[in-house]
Design a binder for these strands. Structure first.
Lengths: 334, 334
DNA sequence: TTGATATGGTAAAACGATTTACTATAACCA
DNA sequence: TGGTTATAGTAAATCGTTTTACCATATCAA
């Protein structure tokens, strides 16, 4: 039982394929098709449950109504939540999302871009990594909208939506200092992306601006793809060997590992040991005591991303690139 | 700068389109194309960076190498994690995932199925809701592989991968009873899906089997799509008005709301008040004290789903439906 | 009456691949 | 020698749409 085609509809209605196509695409009036024919054809379409083959449509028109989403890891709660919001909003405008996780692997990311390209996605939403500059430039040359989010690629002139990681990080450390903390650690990752680098710089600058020493020993850079057990070990080592009274975690999964260390070692968060985590997570709110976090406004990020895409998609002319920085909020708990 | 087509390659290599196609698809040997020609064409393909247009390919062959994934909410950590695992495994076999969230809305789900159908996805992975039976049957009649997961639809004869929710729930309650709990509450949702119903039945049967009364007042069914504030209010009301010494939460997001209530009201989990949550979550491990949970084996679920899909996809003959039940584990914490 | 315009519609090319059926030559065997 | 088979490759149909260019006929203004 093959699916119906436009041909079948044309046959049933005793009109040409062209006529059916015009009606489907709402061009009937403009192409002067009579009301009677329109009604007849529409009735047949509804009755038969005919749905146009999107593949054929894409082949002919060159666009797919699909938006490609490339992130580091779709199961990370930050990305999962943004993805959901983006999907919702895209869906309302007739677009679907196809996604993939790069695992911070440049080769995989390049492959993904190529797959999306050969699938003719209409636009790209990418949380990029270094080394993708050229591939993204190719997309831009091809006149495809590309929105970077969460992380920027300074060498690529395209749209970017993200938070001000430097200032959020700076604020966090400033808060620690004002609380009288003397030995503030930073647990971050070793991936070389702007967002992570900014968090580091915010940390360092806040210290220096307040005349506090920047001690390398208090900065732990965790290798990205290692398993959690190793991460926990390293964090534990840091806590065991250094005298620390406050720590900023640069990502939520690092913070979760860190909290596990505290739990294992039975170290308590309190006046003599403070924690701030980057990117909120249910676990932080529920933790006893509550964990202060830097909250990125997911809804606004998603909204902005979609808005940028739609504006690019509807105006065929190339719009100037926009860099939208949405401030992150420091949520102090307990 | 339009993308290269197979025609361009044929022209450059001075051979026919057919020849190029055979080479691309690894049928060169079988179609007796000479080694010299193969090499020449392959060289041109590599040098020019030509990538076949998947849309055209799909139109001609009728399959897309895309698998459609339909879940309740992709941002829920359970689904996000399974989705990530499924994506990984699918990717390794050359398939991509296109996903959407139903929000438990039958109409939206039907629409999604139709969109996927018109996009000619090769297979469907669906966490279904009641009311979708007919639509899924249509897919099956169309000979498309459909794997239901997390929830089953008893009236549809297709593949299913999930946990034994009845026995996990039963075990949880039994554990409570053995600890001497007398007033065990259940916080669940009002959606009518098998998985949720089984959790309820497990609760009820465990009580009755142990000669304990089933009290309707201790079962709170939260309306699915309401916002969290309302949920918190209802749970708080339950805790305030009923004497309860243990509670089973039927989903992780309900448990999170419940834990928030405890935090707000400063009620402590301990010997006189126990909690078990369904579907693990980072917040449960980190909570003080740790929250016991029913853990579904995500990796195994994803693995099984993909295995079923691939076996269906590779054998064109219709395989008998399989129902794979992977036991859930009750993790007791603290 | 003539030329222009509106009305109502259609034929056929195009999108970029896959695949079937075919051709032409060479090699081989009896 | 003639018939069969292997080798090396190609032309053209096809998938299901959209869209361009066109054709009639009717109407209308000058």
């Amino acid at each position: 039982m093959k699916a119906l085609s436009i041909k079948d509809i044309a046959l049933k209605a005793n009109v040409s394929i062209t006529t059916v196509s015009f009606i489907i695409n709402g061009k009937a009036k403009e192409k002067s098709i009579s009301e009677a024919v329109i009604e007849k054809v529409e009735k047949i379409i509804v009755e038969s449950g005919y749905k146009p083959n999107q593949i054929a449509r894409s082949l002919r028109t060159g666009n797919s109504n699909i938006i490609g989403l490339i992130v580091e890891d779709i199961s990370n709660s930050f990305f999962a939540k943004v993805a959901r919001l983006i999907e919702d909003k895209a869906y309302k405008h007739g677009y679907k999302i196809i996604y993939s996780s790069t695992e911070n692997d440049v080769e995989k990311a390049k492959e993904l871009i190529n797959m999306f390209k050969s699938r003719k996605v209409d636009a790209y939403i990418i949380s990029p990594i270094k080394g993708l500059e050229k591939d993204i430039q190719v997309l831009l040359n091809d006149n495809k909208p590309v929105i970077l989010f969460d992380r920027n690629l300074p060498d690529v002139d395209t749209n970017y939506v993200g938070s001000n990681h430097f200032s959020a990080s700076y604020q966090s450390i400033k808060t620690f200092i004002e609380e009288g903390k003397k030995n503030i650690a930073l647990v971050t990752t070793d991936i070389d992306v702007q967002q992570i680098n900014e968090r580091f710089e915010g940390y360092r600058n806040a210290l220096l601006d307040h005349k506090m020493p920047y001690k390398e020993a208090l900065v732990l850079k965790i290798h990205f793809n290692q398993d959690e057990a190793a991460t926990i070990k390293q964090i534990k080592h840091l806590f065991d060997t250094e005298e620390i009274d406050a720590v900023l975690f640069a990502t939520n999964y690092l913070a979760i590992s860190g909290l596990k260390v505290l739990k294992i070692t039975n170290k308590k968060i309190g006046p003599e040991f403070s924690v701030i985590a980057y990117d909120d997570h249910e676990a932080f709110e529920l933790h006893t005591p509550g964990i202060s976090t830097v909250q990125q406004p997911l809804e606004e990020i998603a909204e902005t991303v979609i808005k940028l895409i739609l504006s690019q998609l509807t105006t065929k002319t190339k719009l100037p690139s926009q860099q939208v920085i949405i401030p992150a909020k420091l949520i102090l708990r307990d």
